[in-house]
Design a protein around this nucleic acid. Structure first.
Lengths: 137, 137
DNA sequence: TTAAGTGCAAATCGTTTGCAGTTCG
DNA sequence: CGAACTGCAAACGATTTGCACTTAA
């Protein structure tokens, strides 16, 4: 098995469904579950199978075009991100809206903590959850 | 700090099963899924239903006696933690072993980021994954 | 005694897969 | 045409729940 490729597994064809999914996720501007996205597409009159939504989201994530997070109850949530590089998020737990946050601070902290305990750092997570100003009104 | 409100939902009786689960998780010294714990108990000759493992792990988590994280594929992993307060983790992705890490730095960062974007901070995650010295040899 | 706790089997629920039909290039 | 892609239905795997039975206090 050779799945070491990170950014080289993107989709290869352009289809109506994939376009719709990417557009919908982009328009969302925040994190969405596959099912939410599927519902939003349906509401817009776009006919896309739930399976296809899952498959494309996965493919896009593998290709590095979208970010994937896990809610506290294990559901996968996806977001189309602007910056290709590594970053973290500030997510509204109410509406899913989010802000990308870059932080040297966190990277340094992760590296330092790992090194200090003799770990070979591989990865780290750091997300902030809260209620955005729109939702708290 | 007042985390007494969160620790008030603990179990009320002492049972053979609960004791076994707590002991096994304590002996593990790192993160374990409910199923792994169930297997380890079985291997030790302890008779505990998988359902019971799930229920107790959940109860202990609610009571604040164990920490819960999610693996990248959505599985819940549990760990018995020494410090009752809030903290983060450095986890070996190979053996599940982990170190508790307290960090004012992260708390401050989370609060600052949230405030800066007009969010009412609710929670945050920050875990570092890597390979521990034992596993990297 | 009696409510909390347990365990099995069945039910959920998000997600994945088999497979036949469709479509991009 | 042929490999990708799609979608439905069935399969999956982790977790939860209904319910009758145990057991701690």
């Amino acid at each position: 098995m050779n799945d070491m490729d990170k950014e080289s597994k993107g989709p290869q064809r352009s289809t109506r469904q994939r376009t719709a999914i990417k557009r919908a996720l982009g328009a969302a501007g925040g994190f969405r579950t596959a099912q939410e996205l599927h519902d939003e597409l349906k509401a817009k009159g776009q006919r896309v199978g739930l399976t296809t939504v899952y498959r494309n989201l996965q493919a896009l994530a593998t290709a590095g075009e979208v970010d994937v997070l896990r809610t506290s109850d294990g559901e996968a949530i996806y977001r189309q991100c602007g910056t290709g590089g590594h970053h973290h998020h500030l997510v509204c737990t109410q509406c899913g809206n989010s802000v990308e946050v870059a932080s040297e601070e966190i990277e340094a902290w992760a590296a330092r903590v790992a090194k200090h305990h003799g770990f070979d750092p591989v990865d780290h997570t750091a997300e902030v959850f809260g209620i955005c100003s729109v939702c708290s009104d």
